[in-house]
Each structure stands twice: as structure tokens, then as C-alpha cells.
Design a protein around this nucleic acid. Structure first.
Lengths: 121, 121
DNA sequence: AGTCGGGCCTACTTTTTGGTAAGTTATTGC
DNA sequence: GCAATAACTTACCAAAAAGTAGGCCCGACT
């Protein structure tokens, strides 16, 4: 057992998962990894199914954990840009591997994601 | 949106996560990755905090998803051995990366996991 | 005979996570 | 003036995941 900041972890992987676990975090991170800078609603549009509540909540956690940052582009009409910060970038191999594995799995089950994606957008 | 077997996924990463998401799966897989062959209670001992219910449930899912297999060593006193199968092995970079990232994170926060571990076992 | 370890299963409860819907401030466009 | 868009927040609810506690079979050990 590892103790850090009042929490306990069974092993280092558990520590890593505490940052990127859950349904949305890796998806958001990998989206930012791919697009570099994105607004709130850009991210939303690219994660079909996520609610505004979830997105803002998850972005907040990711910011708190220093995996992403946001730049306030304008105050009056409030406009922002989210992007991976150093920590978030250091997890890139994770997003890439998970994505490739998924694509391979889909291909083995008759779905060509890379090809089909061109139909979607 | 991707549709496969009556379920929908937002992207390939989502597909991957459907296999290894949750609190325990990666921990179990990486344990088997490290030790090759393990009995039910060996795994249990190495995942402090997991309940028997959780372990057997997760093992069942992992088996169903063909990430692991089990070999029945003896029927009468029922004894088994779990091990990664091909699919489970193909996720190895994931376990390894997540583990290394966690170790690095811990080190940056004053915990030397590799060194401390020798004290535990 | 009684207890322990191994390998489970089942019912039940709690916690965590996620979803819905509505409300807020502010700007741009018709 | 009204609707739409952006970037959120809040309150409430439902579903999913995880935890608790017990039971079961079997063999070995004392």
C-alpha cells in the first residue's frame, strides 16, 4: 500500500489511474493531444454523449491535477482554450496506444474506423 | 459514434476502455503480466483491498473478454491458475507505461516505490 | 472434531459516477 | 427584441460500480 496525500493506492498503476480513470478523462486528453487547442464546445462536439456538466467537471479535475491548462482568451464574452500541459503530454503514449489497440480491435471485428471516420466528419 | 455488439462507443479509446476500465482490471492484468501464472488467492494477496467478490467478478469478465485464461489444475480440491492470454499480452505496453508513469509521479512526490517495495515483501 | 486455506457464489447496501434539465451572463446576428 | 452560441453552474435523480457479509464444498493439519 502506498500512502500519498491522505489517499491509499495499491500500486503505481493505481496512482496513474487516479488521474485518468473514469469514463471521460482519457477521451478528453487524447482529443486535446490530437487538436492541441480546443474550446469548451469544440471538445463537446467531438465527444458525442458527454453532457456539459460532465465536461466541465472533468476539465476541472484535469486542471486541478495539472494535466491540462486553460487560457482565457476573452473575459467579457467569456472565451477559453484548453490544452495539454506538460503532465498531460507525458501521458501521450497512453492515448496513442489505447487508440491503436481500439482501432485494431475494431478492424478484427469488421469495422474500419480510419476509413469510416472520413464519412462522419 | 461506433456501434459494435449492441453497444456504442465514442471512439476507439472508448472501445479499449470497455475492456480494461474500472478500478481493478488493469491491476489484475499487470499482476499476471508480471507473474505469468497465479492462483486466485495469490492475486488476492497482491491486490490489497480487493474483495473476493470483486476479484472473481473481474476475473470472469477478463476471461469472457479473452484477455486472460485459466487452467484447472485439479478438480477435486479445486485449484486453478490464471494467466494472460494473447489479447491480454497485447496490452502489455499499457500496464508497463502506467506503472512507470506512476513510479515517476511518486518519485517526484518523495516516494521511492522501487526501493520501498523491498521493505514490504 | 474443529479450524484453516483455497476457490468460489449470492444477497444486500453503500458509494461513486454519470445523466437531465434548468438557469446564468454575455455577444452576435436577424 | 428575439434567438442562437459560448461557457458555465446548480439541483436533483438514476444507474453502475464497488463493498459487506455470509454461505458452500473440499481437503489437509492438529
Amino acid at each position: 500500500m502506498i500512502r500519498l496525500d491522505k489517499k491509499t493506492y495499491t500500486c503505481p498503476i493505481d496512482v496513474t489511474l487516479s488521474f485518468i480513470g473514469g469514463k471521460w478523462k482519457i477521451l478528453i486528453l487524447s482529443h486535446l493531444h490530437r487538436f492541441k487547442k480546443r474550446s469548451f464546445s469544440d471538445i463537446r462536439k467531438n465527444l458525442p454523449g458527454i453532457s456539459e456538466k460532465m465536461l466541465s467537471q472533468q476539465l476541472k479535475h484535469l486542471e486541478r491535477d495539472k494535466l491540462i491548462s486553460k487560457k482565457i482568451i476573452s473575459e467579457k464574452p467569456y472565451r477559453v482554450e484548453y490544452f495539454l500541459d506538460k503532465n498531460g503530454k507525458s501521458l501521450a503514449p497512453m492515448y496513442e496506444f489505447a487508440s491503436k489497440w481500439g482501432i485494431r480491435y475494431l478492424k478484427e471485428h469488421g469495422i474500419d474506423y480510419v476509413k469510416d471516420q472520413k464519412l462522419y466528419k
